[in-house]
Amino acid sequence: MTHCYRHLTAEDRAAIMMMRATHSIRSIATHLGRAPSTVSRELARHTVDPLKGYDAGLAGYRARLTRHRPRQRPKLHPDGELFEVVVYLLRKYWSPEQIARTLKRMSPRVC
């Protein structure tokens, strides 16, 4: 069973905004041909002010901002000295375990 993932379009978000006041999440999802969890997640992630409700334009803007943001922060800063050491040792075909062991031995408080 294969699924083709599609991001919500501006039209989808506008439909959610218009239907939210009078329809349930399940009926909105059925209308859009999406899973109810998709609509629920969209509302949870992109409703900024619960008093004002869901704004499709702001939601699209927020979605574009978060789409390319990494989920985790990198452990080493790319401009740091330690990053250069790790890259150098990786290019020398050291394994990550060897690098970690060597760095701990060099300075236990760094790792």
Rank of each mutant, 00 (worst) to 15 (best):
P108R: 12
L89T: 01
P70L: 02
R105Y: 13
G33Q: 11
A44V: 08
S40I: 02
R69Q: 10
I99M: 09
T30L: 08
R62I: 06
L51T: 14
G57T: 10
R45I: 04
S95M: 11
V39R: 02
M1Q: 09
L89H: 01
R105C: 06
Y5E: 10
P36K: 00
V85A: 11
G33C: 14
E11L: 11
T30P: 01
R62T: 00
R20A: 14
K92A: 12
D12N: 15
V87R: 13
A56M: 12
Y93E: 13
G80N: 08
G33H: 10
L51H: 15
D55N: 14
H23A: 07
A21M: 10
M18L: 15
L58T: 02
A10M: 09
P36V: 01
V39P: 03
A63I: 00
S27V: 10
T38Y: 00
V85C: 06
P96M: 05
H7W: 10
E11F: 11
R62W: 03
T38R: 00
Q98V: 07
Y88C: 13
V85E: 03
Q98F: 02
R73N: 09
R20T: 10
T38S: 13
V85R: 04
S24F: 05
L90D: 02
P50A: 14
A100R: 13
A29G: 01
R64E: 11
T38Q: 05
Y61I: 09
Y54V: 03
V110P: 01
S24D: 15
V48A: 10
L65H: 13
R34K: 11
H31D: 10
I28R: 00
E81F: 12
L103W: 02
R26L: 03
A35Y: 06
V48R: 12
S24C: 10
H23Q: 11
L8Y: 04
R62L: 13
R71V: 13
I28H: 01
A35F: 03
H7P: 04
D49C: 14
